[in-house]
Each structure stands twice: as structure tokens, then as C-alpha cells.
Computed example of a mutant assay.
Amino acid sequence: MTRTRTAVVVGGGIAGPVAALALRRAGIEAAVHESHTATADGIGGGLGVAPNGRAALDLVGLGRVGAPMNAIVLQNHKGRTITEIRQPMEFSWRADLYRRLYDLALSEGVAVHHGHELVDVRESATGVRAVFADGTTSEEADVLIGADGLRSTVRRLIDPRAPQPRYSGLLGFGARVEGAGLPPTGDRMYMAFGRRAFFGYQSFDDGTGVWFANLPHPYLTWQQVRQTSNEQWLHRLGEAFAGDTVPALDLLRRTPPEDLLAVGPMEDLPHVPHWHRGRAVLVGDSAHATSPSSGQGVSLAAESAVELARALRDLPYPQAFATYEHARRARVERVIAQGARSNTGKTAGPVGRVVRDALLPLFARLATPEKMAWQYDHRIRWEDPVAA
């Protein structure tokens, strides 16, 4: 069987450009097809890139992505520090990371097409054809890679019975604040378990800041969340943090309604049974979406994109897909499970809060660099040959 020479990448968010860049480094021509008609400039809130993700992004040529965030300080609703966890990360705005990846992909010769909504995948003995919604556009390649996120069309085409995302019980909100009014927190992000919601914040030397909130709430779709005005959501968040001795209320007051980012439901995909079928394969959130609480979404997507490119570089696509899944599944599902446990602590009731606050210092003592090495020290050895 001949080696893979061309690939169609469906999805132009974060995982798609990383996959295309890694494929090009592996000697495989890749084009990205995005359903939205415009770029995602200015869209999205803050995110963390872990050392393992940083290493994967290095392999596709992306330099430093953000500001150091080397510790998380956990507090209770009274503002008392429960524990501090040393956790080396980089903080970045999603829009900044997206733009840097987009520009890097273009500079490396990756074609990026907008307004291409995938509706079907058709295979032949010699390749695969991606069919788009306009009815006149399609593209052929040796393989097709689904990097189209949590509600992946490629996942549904691979397996019509594929699971739907699982709701954590939390809605996500956040904002960038131009005048945070707080002393700089240095390389620390503060996270507070409020009595009715969870709040995180970091302030920078230039006076700006970022905050996010996880609000326990019955399930709403993103569209349903948007039916409530930003002014109303800011009011509800203010009610949730009333009486808590953390900077939540002040930062909420400093947030113009138009700057509020309503992320919507926080969801994950604990287990996707089928990552590939025929010449199509999944990567990133389409295969292994983890809750934002894990802090590993971007990092796992970058790892998987690079690992898939390595496998396609060295193996025919059937063996490459199987080897890639075998290398990734156990790791990503372990991280997803850890993120789900974090969400459980954010939705604890009155009794659960007491137990949680009592156990968090113990957890911090157990979360030593040695214990967390499996997560943060993971490195992909690009030059090593991949064996089936």
C-alpha cells in the first residue's frame, strides 16, 4: 500500500491548523476546510497551554504562546487560601493563539478555505472525497481528518451512533478586563470555590486582567444562553457571588456587558468508541473533548495532531490510524476523567463544600511534580520511527 501524500483537514480552529502543519512537516500536503465564512479573530476567552502542549506546538514551529502561569492558588468563598498547586502553564487568549496558528499555516503554504461546510465523505479504492454544503465544491485526498470540534460532523459520519457531549452541570462565562483594579498576581492564577459558583482570575502588570466563572445551572444550549442578555447574566453572576469574600463582584462591575463572553455549557466526551473508519480519522475535540477544567484541551489536541502526522508519515493509513489511536486513547481518557472530577467539586452542595475544602490540601500534597509527570512531562519523539 502506498504512503499517504495528501490530506483534507476539516475544521480550522486550533487542532486543524496544528494537524496541517504537522502533516506538512511529515511530507504530506494538507488543506484546511472551515465551515465558517470568516476567520475567528477576536473570538474566545483565555486558555492554558501546559508544558506537554507547549512541546507539541514547538514541533510545528510555534514559539511561546503566552504569559507564564506557574501556580494555581485555590481559595474558599471567604478568600482564605486552601492550598497552592505548582502547575507550570502558559496563559493565552484563544484569539491570539488562533491567529498565530492561522498565520503560520498560511506562511507554510497550507491552503485554508472558508465557507466549506462538510456534509458527506465518499470513499473509493484510491482516495476519499469531502463533499461540502454548496453542492458544487468537493476535494479529494488520500485521507480525511476531522478536526471539527465537540459537535463533529466527521464523528457522526464515521459512526452515526457516536455519543453526544456530556454536560458537566456548569455554564461558562469570562471576560478580559481593561482596568482590573487589582494588584498584579504575577505568575499565579487565583481560583475560588464560592458558595454558589466557581471563580478564577489573574491580573497583569499592565493593569488588565482576566476572569472566568463556572455557574451551576440546568442544561442550556449555547443558543439558549445567548437568548439571555449579557446584562442579565452579569446580574445573575453577581447574585451567585454575593457574600463571597473574593474579587468577583468588583471584576463583574468592571466588565462592560458587550465584553462578557458567554461560553455556554461546559461539556466533555469521556469515550468515543470509533476514532476512524476507512480513510477518515478524528483528532482533537472531535475524538477526545475534555472539560475546560482540565486545562489540557489545547495541549491534548496539539499532541494528537502531531502523533497522527508521525503515524501517517511512517505507516499506510489503516495501520497509522490504529497505531495513533492506541498511542493516544488511554492518556486522553485519563485526563478527561480528571477534568470531570474537578467539575464535581465545583458543583458541591453545602456538605460537599466542607468535605472538599478539607480534602483539597491533601490533594495538593499528593499533586507533586512527580505525581503529575504523566500529564505534564509527556513528550513526542518526532524523529523516532513509528511501528505498527
Rank of each mutant, 00 (worst) to 15 (best):
G11C: 09
G12P: 11
G12A: 07
G12F: 02
A20K: 04
E29N: 11
H33V: 01
H33W: 07
T39E: 12
G42F: 04
G42S: 12
G45D: 10
R64I: 00
A67V: 12
N70I: 01
Q75P: 02
E90S: 05
S92M: 07
W93E: 13
A95Q: 15
L97S: 03
Y102M: 04
A105E: 05
E108R: 12
E108D: 14
H113K: 10
A125T: 06
T126A: 13
G127A: 10
V131Y: 00
D134K: 02
D142Y: 04
V143S: 07
L144S: 04
L144E: 07
D148C: 08
T153V: 15
I158Q: 08
R161M: 12
Q164P: 00
Y167G: 08
S168M: 03
G169D: 12
L170M: 14
G174T: 09
A175L: 10
G179D: 15
G181Q: 11
P183G: 04
A192N: 01
R195C: 00
R196L: 01
F198D: 01
F198L: 01
Q202W: 00
F204V: 09
F204N: 08
D205H: 13
D206K: 12
F212I: 06
P216L: 14
P216F: 14
Y219Q: 10
L220R: 15
Q223L: 10
Q224H: 14
R226T: 03
S229E: 11
L234W: 09
H235S: 14
A240G: 06
L251E: 02
R254Y: 05
P257Q: 08
E258G: 03
L260Q: 03
L261H: 13
M266C: 06
E267Y: 00
D268S: 15
P270D: 11
H271R: 11
R277N: 08
A280S: 14
S286N: 09
A287N: 06
P292Y: 01
S293I: 00
Q296N: 04
G297E: 08
V298E: 01
S299C: 03
S304L: 02
S304E: 15
V306N: 12
R310K: 15
D314I: 05
Y324V: 00
A330I: 06
R331N: 07
R334G: 14
V335H: 04
V335N: 12
S342Y: 15
N343G: 14
T344A: 13
G345I: 02
A348W: 07
A348S: 13
P350E: 06
R353Q: 13
V354N: 01
L362I: 13
A364P: 00
A367L: 11
M372E: 07
M372H: 04
A373Y: 08
W374I: 05
D377V: 00
H378V: 12
D384N: 07
V386T: 10
A388W: 00
